[in-house]
Amino acid sequence: MAESIEVREYLAAVRAALTGVPGRDRDEAIAELDATIRAEVETRGGDSAAVQATLAGFGSPDEYARALRDALVGEADAIEPQGRFLGMPYEFRAPTATSIRERMWNPSDPRIAMPRLFGLGWTVNFGALAVRLGLMRPDDIEARPFGNLSARAVGAAVAVPVATGIAALVITGAFWSRLPAEVPIHFSGAGVADDWAPKAVALGALLAIAAGLPVVILAWHALRRASRAVIAITSVVLGFLSVLAAVILGYTIANAVYGVEGWWIGALIVGSLAVPGVMLYLLARASLKAEWRATAESRGATEGEDAR
């Protein structure tokens, strides 16, 4: 079986050249390459000449490793939209913590408008905004982004959607009996109600987003023991949706019970975009500072030993 030794050496060389690729991705890539080579050798006749020809076709291990690394590491996957429609990016793949981070908090990318996380259009890259405002430098990114968050910091992030959801439930409960059977579900630009629906449907839908969604998604993340970084990033998106739903819910109730109305509701809705921006900034800063502290401490420890 001289041929399998050649293949094994080739695989080992590719593996050694695959620097900068996480271990699990590397194992998977090597297993896949192994299977591909075997299949190719088989179709070429399975003898040692077939092995030679197959390996020659793959190029040198270094070259192959470089191509593989580019494919594995390419952050393009998480930033490039699924497609474009009339020049507008669209995305209908479910958002992941990575795609949320690459699009909503990417200080090194100067673009403020990024392809939207889900749907048609754009989303705000708050990282680029923070750099523009002089709050961050473009490479203020930790070795693992959001990877050094304390349990307290993640708890604070989780508290935003959870507390907003609870507040929405309490307010709805307190006003339920005073609400008319039908409540507004649509307002004009001036904030005047122009469409109505039964209150259980209208407020139920808003409560599902403000309170239901955070509970379901956070419980799911807790069950699969997601990392702190993933929980924090998820809480940012949930916090945004939950605050947005709560603002609309509050305005609906105020409008139906007290007749409150005004154009400012539009500004308030746009203003709720500040929630994910502020959350991402505070989380990134906390994680960054923890990394700086760890670096300074490890350096201090080495210096202390040197002095002795």
């Binding site: 900068g20 690394r69 590491v73 952050e75 200080p107 090194s108 990318d109 100067p110 490479d139 990114i141």
Partner: peptide
């Protein structure tokens, strides 16, 4: 900066604070 981040992810440059 995007290129530095790419080079770092590809393992061609290392970073240290």
């Amino acid at each position: 900066y995007p290129l530095l981040s790419r080079l770092n992810k590809a393992g061609l440059v290392d970073t240290v604070w």
